Amino acid sequence: MHNQAQGPIGIFDSGYGGLTIFREIVKQLPQYDYIYLGDNARVPYGIRSYETVYRYTLECVRHLFDMGCRLVILACNTASAKALRTIQQRDLPKLDPYRRVLGVIRPTTEIIGNLSQSGHVGILATAGTVKSESYVIEINKFFPQVKVFQEACPMWVPLVENNEHESDGANYFIQKHLNQLLTQSAEIDTIALACTHYPLLSSKISHFLPSHIKLLTQGEIVTQSLIQYLGHHPDLEERCSKKGEVAFYTTESTEDFDTKATIFLGHSVNSRHLEL
């Protein structure tokens, strides 16, 4: 009865950004066990080909399965855009049809049209996510009438990772990209932060945004989606262990990971190294 064994929920990201998703999930679902895996040795994923992102993501998903995870969340927009569907359709049936892998794009795209009055929505993301058109394609499936405008913000991730996101220097890059997005349409009334690093910039972003524009961060959306998913799949929910334990793994230096993770979580962590 191997598929009845209990295990933690795995949360995977190419680096640190997924910690904003992780933080929200643990806040609202503290009873479960979690393993967070950051593939920091091979970050960034955004600039890599589909094939490479797929290969790296599958490798990390397999490691999380080996650690006992029954459910893995790709808390990374690039991995969700470039690897999720292939893993779900091609690999899961062979690896273990009882395990599940979920992403962060769909939960956002299946509600965004309900939040916009004007039918004009904005996406702020990395260049890789913008180029993949994933948000445009997915939003179009759920809300064919909604117009989607995208803006790539290449400087935002380095600002966060270098702990400059509170600085005055960050203001220039935030204003620049918001202006470039809003220039595309004066009717945008809802904007999604489609990169998991960006919530750390959200107070500054809100400061420069007209007050009628809604700003969506993925952590809360993905958490709500996960709560619904577990409710609809009681068999899977029962296989998620519940001791409230959390472990962090990184493919890079644990010292670096622990220092940067503090920026995202607001408390210190003790990560372990995973050799790929």
Rank of each mutant, 00 (worst) to 15 (best):
H2A: 05
N3C: 09
G7L: 13
G15F: 00
G15L: 02
G17T: 00
G17R: 00
E24W: 03
I25G: 05
L37D: 02
D39L: 09
R42M: 10
I47V: 14
R48M: 10
E51G: 10
T52P: 15
Y56P: 03
H63M: 10
L64P: 13
L64K: 02
R70K: 06
I73D: 02
T78L: 01
S80N: 08
I87S: 04
G103K: 10
E110R: 11
E110V: 14
G113D: 03
Q117A: 12
Q117T: 15
S118R: 04
T126D: 04
T126A: 08
A127P: 15
T129Q: 01
S134L: 03
I139D: 08
N140G: 15
F143K: 03
F143D: 09
K147I: 12
V148D: 08
F149D: 15
P154L: 09
V157A: 01
L159P: 12
H165G: 14
S167T: 14
D168K: 09
N171H: 14
Y172H: 08
L181T: 11
T183E: 14
I191W: 05
L193F: 05
L200W: 00
S202M: 07
H212F: 13
H212S: 11
Q218P: 15
V222H: 01
T223K: 09
T223A: 11
Y229T: 02
H233W: 10
P234A: 09
D235S: 08
E238D: 05
S241H: 05
K243N: 05
G244D: 03
F248G: 03
Y249H: 04
T250A: 01
T251F: 01
T251M: 02
E252D: 15
T259G: 02
L265V: 14
L265A: 06
S268Q: 11
V269M: 02
N270C: 14
H273C: 12
H273M: 15
L276W: 15
